[in-house]
C-alpha cells in the first residue's frame, strides 16, 4: 500500500510539469499580450504612452524574452517562492486574488459532490434492485429531467422561488450586511442560506449521470454467482446486497471522483455568473478575456492540480476498497 501511494504521487510530478507547460502555452496562445491590450485601451482614451515607458514595462515583465525564459520565470516563482505573478488587470499580486475564490469554489464543489453521492447512491441502488419497477421509472425520469435542464435556468428558477416565497436574499454568498462582518454564528447561518442554491443547482445535473452509473454497475453485479452464494448463506436481502454487490459496484462509482470533480469545477462557471458567486469561474473568464495572463495561468494550473488530486483521491479510495488493486 505504501509503495502504491509513493508510486502514485511520483507519477503526478511529470503530469504536473506537463500541465504547467500546457497552461503556459494556452495563456500565450492569443495574439498579443497584456501590454498590447493595455496600450490599445490607453490609445482609445487618447492617452498615448511614450515608447520609453512601454519598453520599461516590457522589460519589467520579461515580455521581450523568449517564451521558455518567460515560462521559467513564471514557474520558478510559483514553485520556489509561492509567487503566482502580478495581475495586470487588478494591479495586485495574483496570490491575493485567487485563494479566497479557490477556497469557495472548492467548498461549493465538494459540498455539491457530497450531495450528489448522498442522492445518487441510494437511488442508484434502489433502481438497480427494483429494475423496471414504478419507482425505477420515476427516478429515471426525474434523473433525465435533471440532466436536461440547463443549470442556469435551474439557478434562475430557484432564485426566483426563494426570493418570492421564502423572502431570502439570494445571489452572492452573503447578505450585504454580513459581507464584511467578522465570522460568527449569524454570518455562518447567512452563508448556509445562500449556499444551498448553488449546491443544489450544481448537484442536480451530475446526480442523474451518477444514478445511471450506479444502476448499471449494480445491475451487472446482482446476477453474479457470489450474490447467490451470499443468499445461500441465509443473509437478509438488504445485508447481502449492501455487503457484496454494492461493495463491488462502488469501484467504478469511486472512479467517477476523477471526472466529476473537474467537471464540477469548470462547469459551475455559468452558475456562478448567474448567481453572482465569488467563485473561480467568473474571475478566470475575465482574466482570459483581458489577457491577464498570470492570473489566468494561475487559475488553470491550480484547477488542473486539483483535478489531479481528485484522481489521486479516487485511486487511493479504490485501493482501500478493493484488495485486487492493492495487491498488484
Amino acid at each position: 500500500m505504501g509503495r502504491f501511494l509513493v508510486k502514485r504521487v511520483l507519477y503526478m510530478i511529470p503530469t504536473l510539469i506537463g500541465i504547467s507547460v500546457i497552461c503556459f502555452i494556452i495563456i500565450q496562445l492569443p495574439p498579443g499580450d497584456f501590454l498590447t491590450s493595455v496600450l490599445s485601451s490607453m490609445a482609445e482614451s487618447g492617452n498615448r504612452p511614450d515608447q520609453a515607458s512601454i519598453d520599461r514595462l516590457t522589460a519589467q515583465y520579461g515580455l521581450d524574452q523568449p517564451i521558455y525564459v518567460q515560462y521559467w520565470r513564471w514557474i520558478s516563482g510559483i514553485v520556489f517562492h509561492g509567487d503566482f505573478g502580478w495581475s495586470f488587470d487588478w494591479g495586485q499580486p495574483v496570490g491575493h486574488l485567487i485563494w479566497d475564490r479557490l477556497g469557495i469554489t472548492l467548498l461549493v464543489s465538494s459540498l455539491s459532490f457530497v450531495l450528489i453521492w448522498v442522492i445518487a447512491l441510494p437511488i442508484g441502488i434502489y433502481s438497480a434492485v427494483n429494475r423496471y419497477s414504478l419507482g425505477d421509472h420515476f427516478f429515471t425520469f426525474l434523473g433525465f429531467v435533471g440532466l436536461a435542464v440547463p443549470t442556469f435556468i435551474l439557478a434562475l428558477i430557484l432564485m426566483y422561488l426563494s426570493f418570492t416565497y421564502l423572502g431570502l436574499n439570494v445571489g452572492g454568498l452573503f447578505s450585504p450586511e454580513y459581507e464584511n462582518a467578522a465570522w460568527g454564528l449569524a454570518k455562518f447561518w447567512d452563508l448556509c442560506q445562500h449556499l444551498w442554491i448553488p449546491i443544489v443547482v450544481i448537484a442536480v445535473s451530475s446526480t442523474a449521470a451518477l444514478i445511471r452509473v450506479m444502476r448499471a454497475n449494480l445491475s451487472d453485479e446482482l446476477s453474479k454467482p457470489y450474490v447467490v452464494t451470499a443468499r445461500a448463506k441465509g443473509l437478509s436481502e438488504f445485508t447481502l446486497i449492501m455487503r457484496y454487490p454494492v461493495r463491488i459496484a462502488l469501484n467504478p462509482f469511486i472512479s467517477t471522483i476523477g471526472w466529476v470533480l473537474p467537471s464540477l469545477i469548470s462547469g459551475v462557471t455559468i452558475t456562478a455568473i448567474v448567481l453572482n458567486l465569488p467563485m473561480a469561474g467568473p474571475l478566470l473568464l475575465r482574466a482570459l478575456v483581458s489577457q491577464d495572463m498570470y492570473l489566468a495561468g494561475a487559475f488553470i494550473l491550480l484547477l488542473s492540480a486539483l483535478t489531479l488530486v481528485g484522481t489521486l483521491m479516487s485511486d487511493i479510495l479504490l485501493a482501500l476498497l478493493d484488495p485486487r488493486i492493492r495487491y498488484q
Partner: peptide
C-alpha cells in the same frame, strides 16, 4: 439456508467475493 442446508457452487472463482 446456510444453517440446515449448505450449498457448494460450481465456479469457485466467481462464487466467492473477490473483495
Amino acid at each position: 439456508r446456510g444453517a440446515q442446508i449448505g450449498m457448494i457452487f460450481q465456479e469457485p472463482m466467481s462464487s466467492l467475493s473477490p473483495v
